[in-house]
């Protein structure tokens, strides 16, 4: 029987890295993506179209984020990949391994050690620093798509700051349900100009984008869009004056592993015992808390 480690090594040997450019993409592609990223940084919250490449993973599985990551990587970089807070889910592992094999750079599970963090549906609990870049995978970059199907129209709406249709859906939600029922991917106003979809992160994480120290890049591979929130940018969730924005509440709950009471918790249903238990969604953070407690 081979250990997992040996299997990985065998795998590495069969993969002919010399056939590929450093970090998989050719330099021309990387340059295009970096140029578009710069434009996105220059216009916070604005969706910049880019020529999304064919990737060795399916569209909709993080190709946008992956292309951003690969275009940003230098040989000194350390990468962390998370999938819904998890470092060791299949998706995260596959993307991490692809990057390792085509670039040979170091990867980590420690948030603080990573220079680039690619994530799906979560922002790490640990506050990111100014020299870190967060790359988020985005399924639907257009926040107005729910209210307007035509791209032609939504572009005009952004250009003219015509956001009344978006506000109208929030209003309707209040009239019907008494509160705004949007959970993940809660629309935000970036730098008092563009309404932006923050990717399907929970409301809990939305506030981490406001005046953050780090750069956040958003990549939508299928929809071919890149957008960004530069450090120290105002990011305000849409809210009415009498219906303020609220994050998920975990009042009185704590993580079953680390006991943390101020992290985003996942629900786990124990069918046998018939009870619901909670645990940190950010596994790296949870492990760190456990080690600190000892």
């Amino acid at each position: 029987m081979q250990t997992t480690e040996q299997k990985q090594n065998n795998h590495k040997r069969t993969f002919n890295t010399a056939e590929y450019n450093f970090a998989f993409l050719d330099e021309g592609s990387k340059r295009e993506i970096r140029r578009k990223s710069l434009k996105a940084v220059a216009i916070p919250g604005y969706q910049v179209a880019f020529a999304s490449r064919e990737m060795p993973i399916g569209r909709g599985w993080g190709t946008g984020g992956l292309q951003l990551t690969l275009s940003l990587l230098g040989r000194q970089d350390t990468l962390k990949v998370i999938d819904q807070g998890n470092d060791d889910s299949v998706n995260a592992v596959s993307i991490r391994r692809l990057v390792e094999e085509t670039s040979g750079i170091l990867t980590t599970e420690e948030t603080a050690q990573a220079s680039i963090i690619q994530s799906r549906h979560r922002i790490p609990e640990e506050k990111l620093k100014f020299d870190q870049i967060l790359v988020l995978q985005v399924p639907q970059p257009e926040p107005l798509r729910k209210v307007e199907r035509r791209e032609e129209r939504t572009r005009i709406q952004h250009a003219e700051m015509d956001y009344s249709a978006m506000w109208l859906t929030l209003y309707e939600s209040i009239v019907k349900w008494g509160s705004i029922t949007l959970g993940a991917d809660y629309p935000v106003m970036v730098h008092e100009r563009y309404i932006m979809a923050p990717s399907p992160i929970p409301r809990w994480d939305t506030e981490k984008l406001h005046q953050s120290h780090h750069l956040t890049l958003f990549g939508a591979g299928r929809e071919k869009k890149i957008y960004a929130i530069p450090p120290y940018t105002n990011v305000q969730p849409l809210e009415f004056e009498d219906y303020p924005f609220e994050v998920e509440s975990f009042d009185g709950l704590s993580c079953r592993h680390c006991g943390s009471m101020d992290s985003f918790l996942d629900e786990v249903v124990d069918d046998e015992a018939g009870i619901t238990i909670h645990q940190c969604s950010d596994t790296a953070y949870c492990r760190q808390q456990q080690e600190r407690i000892g």
Partner: peptide
Amino acid sequence: LRMPISSSGNIAEKLFAADHYHVG
């Protein structure tokens, strides 16, 4: 009018456009 949206919502839409954001 936006036919599938509530009548009050139709009026609200015009008010959002004029920067009113107080549901009450």
